[in-house]
Simulated assay, not measured.
Amino acid sequence: MALTGAEELSLQEEVPFGEQPRAARLDALLRLRLPIGGELDVAIEVLAQAYPRDILQVVHQLRKYREYTTSGPQPLELAVVAEHISPGARQELQDAGINYFDATGSMYFRHRTYLVVRQVIGAQHKPRRPVRLFSGAREKVVHALLEQWRRTQRGEVLSGADLSIEAQASTYTVSTTMQELEREGWVETTGAGPHLRRRLIKPEGLLDAWADDWVSRKENRSRWHVLARSNLVDTVLDKLQDYDGWALTGAAAANAVVPHLTSVDRVQVIVPPGHAEAWADQSQFKKAEKGANVVFIEREGASLMFLDTHPERPGSRFASRFVQYLDLLGGYGRDKELAEEFRRHALHMKAKT
């Protein structure tokens, strides 16, 4: 309990409670002395992997124990300990007033006015999902699902075939991805077999998890300078008009969606992997680690889905609003602050909690 500053006084395992002979059992009961003074009991249930659907039973068990011990001599808090707790499960535990700790070192511990929170992003653990959810074809499914939600603002019910077309991914990839999203509690499923349909019910939670993965990535970026005699964005668009597989992103693109969001003194461009040096040379961009006004980011896949053209700039290619938002989060200067404004006005989503 080093992070909380609390001292362990005792630990009991397999603690029976309830009416005999069919008494329930609590996995562990921990007694602590807090640094703010006083002693505290923590009722603990243990899981291997914790996703929203997995925690329903343990939350019920913990609440039953609290009801049974309401007259105990010590104040009581509830907690879940697991090898891995998914982002969706973490949020549901917090909403239920239940503390947690997992093997990555992430924890949430609250007792009255005493609060310790530690979220470890990108830590190593053994999640149940066989591959990263936000990569390759699965990331394209996530992007397509969010984009469909943004267009309708209702979270329409979708078949796997419909989403497969939108995401340009196989029906198998769609199915396995949606199963992971359902496990997280972001998607709900109705029907079965050919009548099975899914709907996005927690778009903010899905986007926040995607953002956590996005900002932890290491990408090939190169910085350049171009002489712009007028508007920088128009200059860059003019230089790139004969190429394929690129898109403007970050603040420059976001400002086209929400005008006057910010002044633009640097343009970020998604370019195909391995093409940055050649394109820059052919477009007469100068290498510039300092004073750069153009950044090439080498990407493919989901980053180039749902491109948009600005009506006042024929031939322009802007990344989707979700990619613009994600790149603002990992951007420069005030970009992170602007991301929240863009999230509200362009994505019509609540601020990140």
Rank of each mutant, 00 (worst) to 15 (best):
K64Q: 11
R138T: 02
R128T: 04
A96Y: 02
S316E: 15
V142A: 11
L32H: 13
S170W: 06
H348S: 15
R138F: 01
G245Y: 00
G245C: 00
D208S: 04
R344L: 00
A96Q: 05
E77D: 14
S263G: 12
T152K: 07
L40N: 13
E184F: 02
T113G: 09
L78N: 12
V269I: 12
R129P: 07
R183C: 00
S71K: 05
P75H: 00
V117L: 09
V117T: 12
H275E: 15
A48W: 10
L328H: 13
E298I: 11
G331N: 14
T113Y: 08
L145M: 04
T189G: 10
S230H: 15
P21K: 12
H195F: 01
V141S: 05
W279T: 02
S135C: 08
E147D: 09
G155V: 03
L206M: 02
K286Y: 08
P16T: 12
Y243A: 13
E166N: 13
P21V: 07
A247W: 13
V81F: 15
R221G: 10
L163C: 00
M1Q: 03
A82L: 02
H84N: 14
R299K: 01
R138D: 02
F322Q: 00
G333N: 03
E312N: 08
F109K: 13
D308R: 12
H260W: 13
I36T: 14
H143L: 12
G88V: 07
A339T: 09
T353C: 01
L29V: 14
S316G: 15
V81G: 14
R183K: 03
L240C: 08
Y65R: 11
V116H: 05
D54L: 02
V117C: 09
L338V: 01
W279F: 02
P87G: 06
T262H: 06
M107N: 11
A280I: 03
T4N: 10
D27G: 03
E337L: 04
A211H: 09
R25A: 10
Q282H: 07
H348M: 14
L227P: 04
L304Q: 02
E147W: 07
D95N: 12
N293E: 05
R344M: 01
Q324P: 00
Y332F: 06
H111E: 14
Q284D: 07
W279M: 03
R31V: 15
A169P: 01
K218E: 14
I36L: 10
I121E: 05
A211D: 10
V295I: 10
E14T: 11
Q284I: 04
Q241K: 12
A346D: 08
A209C: 04
W149M: 05
K286C: 11
F296W: 10
L248K: 13
S106Y: 11
P16C: 13
V46M: 03
Q179G: 05
L196N: 14
L3A: 15
A302I: 10
I55A: 00
D102H: 07
V58F: 05
Y332S: 07
E147F: 06
P311K: 09
E19I: 02
N293L: 03
K126T: 14
S175N: 05
P21C: 07
